[in-house]
Design a protein around this nucleic acid. Structure first.
Lengths: 206, 206
DNA sequence: TAGATTGTTAATCGATTAACAATC
DNA sequence: TAGATTGTTAATCGATTAACAATC
């Protein structure tokens, strides 16, 4: 069924499944049912089965899902079975913090280049990465084969950085700046703005 | 229409409207139509009108929305018209970065206390805040009237911190740790895990 | 007035959940 | 075999979009 379009909601749940399956694998659990999964992840078991069924028949009736096998499959689906190079622009506090997550990302994804528009920042070292000036971006990204870009600059600079990413052939962007950026339709943008998140939380206070 | 339940999707868009309206206000623009708003924010104008109409009649037919007035109204809806105190647990790289966003949050929300389980961290200063040991949490939160908690500890510690937040009467939690946490239904939890976000982005690579 | 734009109803679209035959 | 659990269809639920009368 590779042809049907998978909804964004489904794709966003896959990493959550993967994360929990990895936890189970570390505890040497062999199989898991959609029931168990649903309980732990606060999701409807039918939804989990349906999500997975978009991509294949990964379970066994009466048994559940083999954890090692399902991990392998989800990694393939998410394209995490290969190395994906990531670049980050904006070596401020947040950018620096994210660079230090490299170990977290395991082998699948890795921040391999950091840029900053402030000349004074160039040359600084963050977790074995040297901050480079923006002028180097095009050359560095194509040499390293970077496909995903992270934006951690102030809102006023985000569109500018996005434009440069697009010009460098970046395929997907994770934008931490609190502003909507415009990119060609073939470039995927996700947002990760914690101020927006906090503000919507306030609504639920009594 | 205060009685009808407002969907989460609507609440999540309000801060996005607010943000852009603030930008316009700074440029001294006086009014804006749902058309304009939709264009800038990549949203359907009908959706914007409907979202706002849940809360009242804020626009003028033939004219659009008065920006100053709409800002005031959205701030009231989101409860950002009062000061909201926020506490953060986990003074690692990410926690430190977030503390430095205090200026960004303006007056409406403010991180007023930082805690860390590592005794060696206690006493450190981050952006005028002194890191305190976990044992102080209950006393400090009730003294400062903290209502929202931010979790920036490793996944393995997140549930534990959440439990302590709940015991302190925290009403809402923003969890940056890559794990689902369990809290009583009256406590609201939002997730802000950038590794999940990155992994779902990978799916969209060719 | 004529043009623009809201608020709102109805139509559409899509996502979640329930139910169950198939089968391990 | 009996019990458990999948994959999948059908039913439900909810969110988005289109359309338009009201009106500034």
């Amino acid at each position: 069924m590779k042809s049907q379009k998978i909804s964004e909601a489904v794709v966003r749940r896959l990493p959550i499944y993967l994360r929990f399956l990895n936890e189970l694998a570390m505890k040497n659990v062999a199989t898991v049912s959609s029931q168990d999964l649903g309980q732990k992840l606060d999701l409807n078991p039918a939804q989990i089965r349906k999500d997975l069924a978009y991509f294949g028949e990964f379970g066994k009736k009466g048994i559940g899902y083999d954890i090692a096998y399902l991990i392998e499959k989800i990694r393939q689906i998410l394209k995490l079975d290969r190395h994906i190079q990531v670049a980050l622009v904006g070596a401020g506090n947040l950018g620096r913090a994210l660079c230090n997550y490299n170990t977290y990302l395991r082998n699948d994804m890795k921040i391999v280049a950091v840029f900053d528009a402030m000349p004074s920042k160039a040359g600084e070292t963050i977790n074995n990465l040297t901050v480079q000036p923006m002028g180097e971006m095009k050359a560095v990204l194509s040499e390293l084969g970077v496909r995903i870009g992270i934006i951690t600059v102030p809102a006023s600079e985000a569109q500018n950085v996005a434009n440069q990413f697009v010009a460098c052939g970046i395929e997907a962007i994770l934008n931490f700046a609190p502003v909507i950026i415009k990119v060609p339709p073939e470039v995927r943008v996700h947002y990760a703005d914690f101020t927006t998140e906090l503000q919507s939380l306030a609504y639920y206070l009594d």
